[in-house]
Amino acid sequence: MTRLWPLPIFLAAIGAALAAEQPPRSGLDYATPGLRAMQADDFANPGMLWVAEGEALWDKKDGMGGTSCQSCHGALSSMAGIAYPRRDPRDPSRLMNLETRIEQCRVDRMGAPPFGYESRELLALTAAIRNQARGKQSSVVEDAAAIAEGERYYRMRRGAFDLSCAQCHEERAGKHLRDETISQGQSNGFPAYRLRWQGLGSLHRRFQVCNNAVGAEPSPLGSQEYIALEWYLAWRGRSLPVETPAVRQ
């Protein structure tokens, strides 16, 4: 539902947003030297184990047609320039991220069972594909409606603590919460290896952690609202280089 705001309130809101605007900073900027070193070395970054597995999965034949990702798409390196999330071409009201796109490809094109969101295989393949763009800015589909929907989620207060994403990751980014520095909550390193997870995890799993932390009911992995939020975050951090697989606390 949309409604028109009185002009002074609208202008005040714009002013507040501009005041809070900071240049995008990767979570890497807030990481300790130890974590940064771990991420920088491909043979010390445990996330690279998933990337290596994903590289192998790319070429692995599966499903009724006996095809692999490689059979249709060619070399994995050709994935460097892809832009996700995007709309489902067959149903433009439906948003797809890389994970749900891979699952759709497996079911519809390969005749193979889906891996399942947050499965080791789907994380591995997603990480391997995202890793192709490491060091480059990732392309973002400029879909104003989808980005606006994601931003709406980002700015909506929720949960027992009544906090929006923006209140921590925009208004208080760089400030301290116990022993941690609050980051801008950028998505450029996902799927990321988190020490707490002792493994690789998706951006949507990270969203669920945040939802739980403010006492809000998390949405399902791969849900439309999470994909919209993912889209907004990709747009918001579009000047940052891809770091997948990032290493974080």
Partner: peptide
């Protein structure tokens, strides 16, 4: 199980070289 190992391709006789080994395991 996925493993990643780093070994230099070429080293000089008598030199010490660093090896890193990592395995995917819970």
């Amino acid at each position: 199980m996925k493993v990643l190992v780093s070994v230099p391709a070429v080293v000089r006789r008598g030199e010490a070289f660093e090896v890193k080994a990592m395995a995917m395991h819970v």
